[in-house]
Computed example of a mutant assay.
Amino acid sequence: MKRIELRGCSEDQLIEICQRLGLQRFRAVQLFQWVQQKAVRSWDEMKNIGKKDQQLLSNHFNFYSLEKLREQRSHDGTRKYLFRLEDGETIECVLMDYERRSSRDRHTVCVSTQVGCPVGCAFCATGLEGFRRNLSCAEIVSQVLDITYFVRQEDPDFQVTNIVFMGMGEPLLNYDEVLKAIKLLNHDQGLKIGMRRMTVSTSGVVPNIIQLAKDNPQVGLAVSLHAADDLKRNHLIPMNRRYPLSQLMRACQEYTDITHRRITFEVALTAENAGEEAALALAGVLKGQLGHVNLIPVNPVTGTGMLRPEQEKIKRFAQVLESAGISVSLREEKGTDIDAACGQLRRQWEGELK
């Protein structure tokens, strides 16, 4: 019998399975808390579950933690991890710390949802390696749990406060597993990360943008826009050929009509697309949308040929948007000294193995 992935189980699933095995309900609750709240990485760490019950449970559950292959730390505190999965595939995720003057500091984990990516955006290191497979709910959640575990070895009070599904892969092409992971990360007996503190990023999978609004209107949405006409966007984001801008903008409007939540429109700026004409075109496309533009100077990635624009050009781009009544900000850059672009660390690792 195939064993069940423990880190992907809801509390209700654990209760049902434990009772079927002759264990009381409280044992399932304990098990869930050890796994999802305390982020333990082995059966031995579950101190209030006896060896006999541990043995019984281990016969039915597959409980594995991610293997940390590499950790890089930036001068700004950002940590980037390369993890190996049970089948030998590798993924990246990032921990970003933001200090706040009021309330608690923000600790954001950027998680991956696929091994590689099928979208193939022109500026992204992940797409250069192709697509391998979707991640399971357990593999998605494990990134947050294992980062929590490692950091708590240094800071026992550490808590992840925010999750962004912006790592390797297209989250809305792994829709069901991503939604399961969101529910687990939000659970009261788990890490208890607020729905409004989680954001799903997409390159424009139109049907699932609308479905997300219906299934979970509390979760934030970020749309990788990057260009204001189909010809340019086709080059940057091949997904646009399937779901062109007109369809995408209608889906975004429907999303905000249902959720009443503002969308973050991400725009990667290169030396070629950061002119005033491009900014005016972008303002025209976004007119009437409930949204905010996040400008992202592109990370230089070997193999893409794309270069960053000059700082003055970026500022002027933002000014043009603001003058047109578009809310805009420049992304606070994190980890630029540690292979910041998504997929770079994995490419480096795989290159070393060849």
Rank of each mutant, 00 (worst) to 15 (best):
S224Y: 06
T199E: 00
S142E: 10
V223E: 06
P156K: 00
M195S: 11
G194D: 01
N234M: 04
G220R: 11
L145M: 13
L172Y: 01
N240I: 05
D155H: 13
I140R: 01
Q189N: 15
V164P: 03
S142F: 10
Q143I: 11
L179C: 05
Q153Y: 07
R241E: 12
D229G: 07
A181Y: 00
R197P: 08
E154M: 12
I163A: 05
G169N: 05
S203N: 10
S142Y: 08
V144Q: 08
M195L: 15
D155N: 15
A222I: 07
A222C: 09
R152N: 12
F165K: 04
L231R: 13
R196L: 05
Q159E: 14
I140H: 03
G220Q: 07
P171N: 02
V178I: 06
H235L: 15
K183I: 06
V178E: 09
Y243W: 09
M195R: 12
L173D: 10
I210T: 11
I210D: 08
F150A: 14
K232C: 12
D230W: 01
I237S: 10
E170P: 12
K192L: 14
F150D: 15
L212C: 02
M195C: 11
L173F: 07
Q218E: 11
L179R: 04
K232A: 15
P238S: 02
L225H: 02
